[in-house]
Amino acid sequence: MIVRIMGEGQVKVADSHFIELNKLDDELLAEMESGDTDGFKRTLSALLEAVRRLGEPLPDDSLEPSELILPNEDAALEEVREMLSDDGLIPG
């Protein structure tokens, strides 16, 4: 799956890694629902770091369609809340 981190670029992440990423996404959703801003920032950072670690960066000139778009680390809780679906940032 091609994942775009806003302001950074695209990363290709194997489907097998989405179990780990979904756990972080579930934590992020719970922190957002409870209004835990510190936990939200910590988990968002961990989620983005996992995507970077597990994925393979695509060249800057690559024009692949992104199947998933994630906010950057500086995103505020309210900004991310607007991006959410019922499943969180990562479907599934």
Rank of each mutant, 00 (worst) to 15 (best):
K12M: 05
M83A: 03
L63P: 02
P57R: 09
E33C: 04
R52Y: 06
L44C: 01
E20A: 07
E73D: 10
S66I: 05
S66W: 12
P91N: 02
K12S: 15
D60R: 15
E79K: 13
E49L: 07
G9L: 00
A50F: 09
L68F: 06
T37Q: 12
A50Y: 14
K23T: 03
L24A: 10
L63Q: 15
P57M: 05
M32Y: 03
S85E: 04
E8M: 08
L29Y: 14
D61L: 11
K23A: 09
R81M: 13
R53F: 06
H17Y: 12
E33A: 03
L24T: 08
E49D: 13
V80W: 03
L44W: 07
S62A: 12
P59S: 14
I5K: 10
E27W: 05
E67D: 10
M6F: 15
N22Q: 15
S45T: 09
A46S: 12
H17R: 15
L24Q: 10
D74F: 00
E64H: 13
I19T: 02
L89Q: 01
L77K: 03
R81A: 12
E79W: 03
R52P: 08
L47E: 00
L84Y: 00
L68H: 14
N22S: 11
L58K: 03
A50M: 13
L21E: 11
K12C: 03
V51Y: 01
L77F: 00
G39F: 06
R52H: 13
R81F: 08
L68M: 07
L54V: 04
L84S: 05
L21N: 00
S45L: 08
D74C: 01
D36P: 00
N22F: 06
S45N: 02
E33M: 02
L47D: 00
D36V: 02
M1K: 08
G9H: 04
P57A: 04
D26H: 07
H17G: 04
